[in-house]
Write a protein that binds this DNA or RNA. Structure first.
Lengths: 135, 135
DNA sequence: TTTAATGCAAAGCGTTTGCACTGCT
DNA sequence: AGCAGTGCAAACGCTTTGCATTAAA
C-alpha cells in the first residue's frame, strides 16, 4: 500500500497543508514507514533520505500534521520524547519494557468499565499496557 | 491526621533517608498537604514556609522520596511537568480538563479486561480518565 | 511581487549535575 | 576532621521561536 507522491500530496492539500517537498518526505515517512517515531528519528531518516532539512522544519511539519489530524502525538511515561503515531483511530498502546517498542492495541481489545462518583464525567480514556512481548 | 515531626522523621529514617530539616519540610508538604504537586509547587510552598531552600534540594529530595517508595512520580499527557503523588497504592487518575486538577481513582473503580495477542504479557496498566467534574 | 516555507541559531522550559560550602556527628 | 547534605549556577535534553534567506504562486 505504497501511496504515490501525487496521492500523498493530495492528502496534504485536503488537510489544508501546502505540500512542499520537505513536507512530502516527512509525511511519506511518518505515514508509511516510521513506527511511532520521535522527532529525532524523523530527522535521522530525513538526513539519510532528504538531506539539508532542518530540525525546525521537522518539528514544524510534525506539528502541522498533528493539528491537521493526520497524525497523533503522544507522550509516554518511559520517555520525555514525543512520539508520533500515524494511527489516528481510537486505540491504545502496549509498551514492551524490554525494548521500548510501542505496539498499537485496537480499542476493541481493551474493555474498560468504570465505577466513579457520578460527578466525574469521562470524555476519554488513556491506556498504556506495560509488559513484555514473548519471543 | 497531622503527623508530628517525630513521626515524619521516623518514617524517613525507616525509608533510609536522613531526616534533615529541609527534607522534613518537603516531606510534610507532599505527604500531607500537597495535592499532586509539581516540583515548582513544592518549591513555591517551601519559599513561603521554609525559605532559602534551593530548587536542587527540592528535586533531590523528591527523587529520594520516589526512590524510597514514599512517593510516586507521574507524567501526564497534558503537561511536561512531573507530578508527585503521595498515594503509593495501586490507583489511577482522573484529569479534569477544565481545571487541570488530578483526582485519584481507586483501582477497584476501574475494571479492565484485555484481549491481546498471547505473546503480549501485561505487567502493569496505566490509565488516565479525562473529562470534567460536574459542579 | 507578495507571501509562505525554510534553515540556523538562540531561547525556553523542566530537570539534573558539578562543585564549593555548610553543618552535623 | 570527616562526610553527607545543601545552594548556586551551569549544563542538559527536548522543543519552540525569531529572524534573515529562499522558493513558490
Amino acid at each position: 500500500m505504497e501511496a504515490s507522491t501525487a496521492e500523498l500530496s493530495e492528502r496534504l492539500q485536503r488537510a489544508g497543508i501546502k505540500p512542499t517537498a520537505q513536507r512530502l518526505a516527512i509525511y511519506r515517512y511518518v505515514a508509511e514507514e516510521g513506527e511511532h517515531p520521535t522527532a529525532e528519528q524523523v530527522k535521522a531518516w530525513m538526513d539519510r533520505n532528504f538531506p539539508k532539512v532542518s530540525l525546525a522544519t521537522v518539528y514544524n511539519t510534525l506539528n502541522l500534521l498533528v493539528q491537521a489530524g493526520e497524525l497523533r502525538a503522544f507522550r509516554f511515561p518511559h520517555t520525555d520524547k514525543v512520539v508520533y503515531d500515524r494511527n489516528t483511530a481510537h486505540h491504545y498502546h502496549f509498551l514492551d519494557e524490554e525494548t521500548g517498542t510501542l505496539i498499537d492495541v485496537p480499542a476493541e481489545q481493551v474493555h474498560i468499565r468504570t465505577d466513579l462518583e457520578p460527578e466525574l464525567k469521562v470524555d476519554g480514556i488513556h491506556v498504556v499496557l506495560r509488559g513484555r512481548r514473548r519471543h
